[in-house]
Design a protein around this nucleic acid. Sequence first.
DNA 1: ATTAGCTGATGATAATTGTCACACGACATT
DNA 2: AATGTCGTGTGACAATTATCATCAGCTAAT
Lengths: 229, 229
Amino acid sequence: MNTFECTCERCHLRTLFFNHISKNDIRSICTQKVEHRYEKGDVILCEGDPIKNFLYLKEGLVKLSRTTSDDKEQIISFAKPFDFVSLLSVFSSENYHYTVTAIEDSTTCELDLGQVKEIARENGVFTLDLMTRVSEATDRIILDNLEIKQKHLHGRVAYVLLFFAQNVYGRDDFELPISRKEIAEYIGMTTENVIRTLSEFKKDKIIRIFGKEIDIIDRERLESISLHG
Amino acid sequence: MNTFECTCERCHLRTLFFNHISKNDIRSICTQKVEHRYEKGDVILCEGDPIKNFLYLKEGLVKLSRTTSDDKEQIISFAKPFDFVSLLSVFSSENYHYTVTAIEDSTTCELDLGQVKEIARENGVFTLDLMTRVSEATDRIILDNLEIKQKHLHGRVAYVLLFFAQNVYGRDDFELPISRKEIAEYIGMTTENVIRTLSEFKKDKIIRIFGKEIDIIDRERLESISLHG
DNA sequence: ATTAGCTGATGATAATTGTCACACGACATT
DNA sequence: AATGTCGTGTGACAATTATCATCAGCTAAT
């Protein structure tokens, strides 16, 4: 973990929710913001910690997870920049409900939550923008979880593979950033069954596997399995 | 469905998100708001409809549902007053992603969305309050769905019974407002298995059943099943 | 009054998923 | 070099869940 500088006025993420904000406010935010670098595996935020900062992901990939009522890990979603994971409970709770962990090297930008709230109080347009982003992010999480809930094992595994291919890497061959166990924790099945399913996909020549390397060679079939399998 | 009048200044729901709003704005909202009465079974909002109003539930009980990618009904959550179901996609989409149906006689209050947004733009404190409510409601939905996902059939059914007993009716005997089929659509299991599970709970003297009437007679056991079963 | 349709209920059987056991290799620790 | 841990992979078997068939009761429609 490592700290360095950038310029908010040129930040490509700024357009997302700092569209309607004064030069003054931008400068004030810019001077006190802190950027952090995390390596794959680092915990960025921890379930239960007090929420002090307003945090967003500038670069990288993270997972959101929590501990269930019977003490197992459960993955809630994966987020890349623009997905605003940290916004989730920022305005509705004193403490984080979820743990955020980097699953690829990541960079975050942390603003003081009090300062952001101060700007929000004085600038309704900014707050509306913000709300739209929060709403989009949570809608996405809800919808994804509902989609998964309705599928069987095979459909769920296919769905995850397609999620990484389409939404994260934009290509059919990629290196899986998570373990089989984590896929299992996300789709709510056992690790063994995830492994078995991947093996079957391989046997059926739908994907190729070399460790974490995945290559989707029959995308149509995989999509069909995701939908109806 | 039936329209009548009330006074916003005295509305017990007003405190929820109209705390920091001017007398003028309240009066302006009050004059153009429309209240609707729905009977059990009435559809209040329909998936795909354009979002024109800012709507909240004054009284009653509703279900949120959607059609899945393979054309089955799926229930997302149940909401009572203060749960603000309609807020869900109000700020992130042009159309409703979900259908809202009354499962008990219900009353809604509908405000013009444009007018609410106008106030939001000019009043950041109001918008912050609003965001907090939206955030709470969506957090709840996400958490409930994660809890259910991690349980087996018996735990899921127990969870639903406890949800109605504790969160909706505040008592251990109540009339189930939904069918077995709807329970199944909510917990992601088949109707037959829901019915079977209820029968087993009855056989094991955990609950009594008379049609839709449920009486929880061994709450401790039911809670244990919900957690570990 | 009869039919059709829906909900609730139960049983038999098939399909899906979980559990346990074991094996292998990579890697870190000692 | 020995040990332990973790991720991956596979098989056998048990548990869980879905599917299909059937039936009873109720209600709406004709």
